[in-house]
């Protein structure tokens, strides 16, 4: 009985595989979605409407492009679980005077050290999609979405900005 079914089963599976659409690429919206949802696992974290500062380097086209993509994804408000994020672009040169934001999203290529120092000084959690930002201690959290979601938290940096994550979340991420 099984032998009789094996060929049609395999053929059907192959046909479906060939009918599948193309490849899906990582994009800023995915990074934003993961970052936003991760913020909901902060102890005493923001609820309702929260402002995400998007830090970019205006001299670097890639950083500007990432900022633009993030801001476009946020639009008038990005819902991540119980949190609604609104965006605020922040030039890296102005990071020392940042205010009115509950978290920072650090685009690739900015001066991480300067951003990290400002974030620690103002006790704001900084999130980046570049793991170098996390490893350097500037970002408290790094998010990757391809090939699968991965979240890395720098424990020392998180402690420095007063960020404490819920126990369940901590057990599912990489801590350094």
């Amino acid at each position: 009985m099984f032998d009789r079914c094996k060929t049609p089963l395999a053929a059907a599976a192959a046909a479906l595989a060939l009918a599948a659409p193309g490849i899906s690429h990582a994009d800023a919206a995915k990074d934003l979605g993961v970052a936003g949802r991760a913020l909901t696992f902060l102890e005493n974290g923001p609820t309702g409407k929260a402002t995400l500062g998007v830090v970019f380097d205006s001299s670097k086209p890639a950083s500007v492009a990432e900022k633009n993509a993030i801001m476009a994804a946020i639009g008038g408000g990005y819902a991540a679980g119980a949190l609604t994020l609104v965006g605020k672009p922040i030039d890296a040169g102005d990071i020392g005077g940042v205010s009115g934001v509950q978290a920072l999203f650090v685009t690739g290529g900015v001066n991480y050290a300067a951003v990290g120092a400002a974030a620690k000084g103002k006790k704001i959690i900084a999130i980046g999609s570049d793991m170098a930002c996390v490893r350097s201690g500037a970002c408290a959290m790094g998010v990757e979405t391809e090939p699968k979601v991965n979240i890395t938290v720098n424990r020392a940096t998180a402690a420095a900005v007063g960020a404490s994550f819920k126990a369940a979340f901590r057990m599912m991420i990489t801590e350094i």
Partner: peptide
């Protein structure tokens, strides 16, 4: 806190379980 399976599943984009080790883990 009890485990919010739905939020963790949305975050990690795959089912989450606590059964194997007692702590929440991705199904993969």
């Amino acid at each position: 806190q009890s485990i919010d399976y739905g939020s963790l599943q949305e975050l990690f984009n795959e089912p989450v379980t606590t059964s194997a080790t007692g702590s929440p883990q991705r199904s993969t």
